[in-house]
Design a binder for these strands. Sequence first.
DNA 1: CATAACGGTATAAAAAAAGATACTACCTTA
DNA 2: TAAGGTAGTATCTTTTTTTATACCGTTATG
Lengths: 127, 127
Amino acid sequence: MIQYKNIQYQCSMELTLDLIGGKWKSLILWHLGENTLRFSELKRTLPQITQKMLTQQLRDLEADGLVHRYIYTQIPPKVEYSLTEAGKSLLPILATLCQWGLNYANEVEVTAKDLTCEQSAPSSLSQ
Amino acid sequence: MIQYKNIQYQCSMELTLDLIGGKWKSLILWHLGENTLRFSELKRTLPQITQKMLTQQLRDLEADGLVHRYIYTQIPPKVEYSLTEAGKSLLPILATLCQWGLNYANEVEVTAKDLTCEQSAPSSLSQ
DNA sequence: CATAACGGTATAAAAAAAGATACTACCTTA
DNA sequence: TAAGGTAGTATCTTTTTTTATACCGTTATG
């Protein structure tokens, strides 16, 4: 039994999925795996995400200690996001999830064109 | 770009999370990792899940080729669920997710008591 | 005859997640 | 002076996910 933020988990996997599940979190982590990115850069990398969702997910990731937020006190504002050590430790797992999905797609013969573990696999993981 | 069941994924990881994400799927897979289980046995193993959710998630997993459903034509009815090869190939990943959550919990000093990658880690994975 | 176990289905409601849209303040550029 | 970039916030609505509850037919048990 795990308790985290007033939620009880019977299995630590449930906790993991709360931390990286949902539509955007793993993608955000994945993109930050390569570079430190500014808010607007992240937004451009994930064109479909709304500003609200990006802000919300980044706040969650920050509160969970997976992402670091650095504010430059300047005008116009500049805020940079990067992975914490905990966040970096997720990258190999994200790569595995990505690779499994890729294999699955090939075996089930899903229409998969030019598919790699995109978009832009962190160079630290490309062997 | 992947397309599967009329949904477009930019990254295969999104596909993976659709297949195993949500509140119950990974837990169901995890429990089926050890044994073939009947509907009612699964229900007892996951006391909090409603009958409807269990049915629904099992149908999803079956449709995605991760779980096999075997109906014994007898009365009272007997239905057994087990992992397909694709489902089994997920077990190491689930173990990794579980282990990461466990490490996270310990490092963040979440209240984690007697926590292993429960409930009943598949024996095939216990090294 | 009533109840329970089996493996569900059907319907409705509640809760959570995600999206759309408008707005802010400040500065720079045209 | 108007438009665009910066990093957001505030509301509201929609969509998706999850839950609650009642119900089905069959057989066995008390």
